[in-house]
Amino acid sequence: MSFFSRLKHYLKYFRADNIVNDVEFIRKHLVPDAAPWKLLGYSFGGFCGVTYLSFAPQGLKQVFLTGGIPPIKDGCTVETVYKACIDPIVLQNEKYYKRYPQDIQIIRDVVIHLAEPEGGGVRVPLPSGGILTPRGFTGLGASAGFERLKEWDPVIVPGSMKQISYYFLNCFERWLSFDTNPLYALLHESIYCQGAASQWAAHRVPVAAAVYYEDMFVNFNVTIEMSKEIGGIRLWVTNEYMHSGLGDGATHVLDHLMGLLNGKKPLF
Rank of each mutant, 00 (worst) to 15 (best):
G141P: 05
Y52M: 11
S177F: 04
A84R: 13
V111M: 15
E189V: 11
Y52E: 03
S165A: 10
V207I: 04
H252T: 13
A197I: 10
H29L: 07
K98S: 08
T133N: 13
E147R: 10
K8R: 14
W152G: 01
Y96L: 09
N170R: 15
K83E: 08
R135W: 05
C193S: 06
M258D: 05
D87P: 03
L39Q: 12
I72H: 14
L11E: 13
S244K: 14
V110K: 09
W152Q: 04
V81Y: 11
P36Y: 14
D215A: 07
M226S: 07
G141D: 05
L235W: 01
K95H: 06
M258Y: 06
G259W: 03
N181T: 14
C48N: 07
K265E: 03
G46Y: 05
H243F: 01
F14H: 09
K61F: 04
W152P: 04
V81E: 11
L132N: 05
V63F: 15
Y97K: 07
G263K: 02
R234S: 00
L254Y: 00
M258G: 03
P154A: 10
G263H: 03
E173Q: 13
F178Y: 15
D248Q: 15
C193M: 11
W152D: 05
S165Q: 08
G263R: 06
L114I: 15
A144H: 15
M1S: 03
V222Y: 01
G46L: 06
G45V: 14
L183R: 12
Q105I: 11
K98Y: 00
N221I: 02
V222T: 04
N170W: 13
L169D: 02
D153A: 13
H29S: 13
G49I: 00
G139S: 06
F137M: 00
G136Y: 08
N262P: 01
P127I: 07
Y241K: 08
L53N: 00
G130N: 12
I89M: 09
R123H: 11
I26P: 15
A208P: 01
R123F: 09
T238Y: 05
L235D: 02
G129C: 12
K73H: 01
G195K: 04
F268G: 02
G67T: 08
F3S: 11
I106D: 15
P182S: 12
Y213C: 02
I89L: 08
V81H: 14
E24G: 02
I164Y: 04
F146I: 10
G232I: 01
E147L: 05
D17A: 09
A196L: 09
A142Q: 08
I112S: 10
F220H: 07
V31M: 15
F4G: 02
C171D: 09
G245Q: 04
R174D: 10
Y212R: 12
D255V: 02
S2C: 14
L260M: 09
G41L: 04
E79S: 15
H188F: 02
Q163V: 12
D74E: 12
E173P: 15
M226I: 01
I230Y: 14
E24D: 07
I26W: 15
P125S: 04
G46S: 10
Q199E: 08
M1R: 05
P117Q: 11
G136S: 06
L187G: 00
N181W: 09
P101A: 06
G247W: 14
V124E: 06
V237D: 00
L267Y: 05
G231A: 13
P88G: 07
